[in-house]
Computed example of a mutant assay.
Amino acid sequence: MLHFLKSLSRTVHQCPEELEKEILKNHDNSNYDTEEDCTISLTVWRKSLIFSCINGFTVIGSDGSLVYRVDNYSRCSDQVVLMDGSGNPIFTICRRRKLRLVDWSWLVYDGEVSKSRINSSSSKPIFYVRKNMKILGKSSKVLAYVYDGVLYDKKCAYTIEGSYTHRMCKILDESRSVLAEIKRKQDAAGGVSFGLEVFVLSFRPGLDSGVAMAIVSLLDQMFS
Rank of each mutant, 00 (worst) to 15 (best):
H3L: 14
K6I: 11
Q14M: 10
K21N: 12
E22A: 09
K25R: 12
N26A: 08
N29V: 03
S30E: 03
N31C: 06
D37P: 04
D37W: 06
T39N: 04
S41N: 03
L42V: 02
T43S: 09
W45Q: 06
L49D: 07
I50C: 13
F51M: 12
T58C: 11
V59S: 02
G64C: 01
S65E: 13
S65A: 13
L66H: 02
V70P: 04
S74E: 13
Q79S: 15
V80A: 08
V81F: 06
V81C: 13
L82H: 07
L82Y: 07
L82W: 08
G85Q: 07
N88C: 07
I90C: 04
C94Q: 05
R95M: 05
R96H: 06
R96W: 02
R97A: 06
K98D: 08
L99H: 01
D103A: 07
S105F: 02
S105P: 00
Y109E: 04
Y109P: 04
Y109R: 01
D110N: 14
R117M: 13
R117G: 02
I118M: 07
S120C: 09
S121E: 09
S123Q: 13
P125D: 01
V129I: 15
K131N: 05
K131V: 02
N132Y: 06
K134A: 14
I135E: 11
L136W: 13
G137N: 05
G137D: 04
G137A: 06
K138A: 11
V142F: 08
V142W: 08
V142M: 10
A144E: 02
Y145Q: 11
Y145M: 08
Y147V: 00
G149W: 03
T159L: 09
E161S: 12
Y164T: 03
Y164N: 04
T165C: 10
H166K: 15
R167Q: 06
M168H: 15
C169L: 10
K170T: 10
D173W: 04
R184Y: 03
L201W: 11
L201G: 06
F203L: 10
R204F: 08
G206K: 11
M213K: 07
L219M: 15
L219F: 02
D220S: 13
D220Y: 06
D220Q: 12
S224I: 09
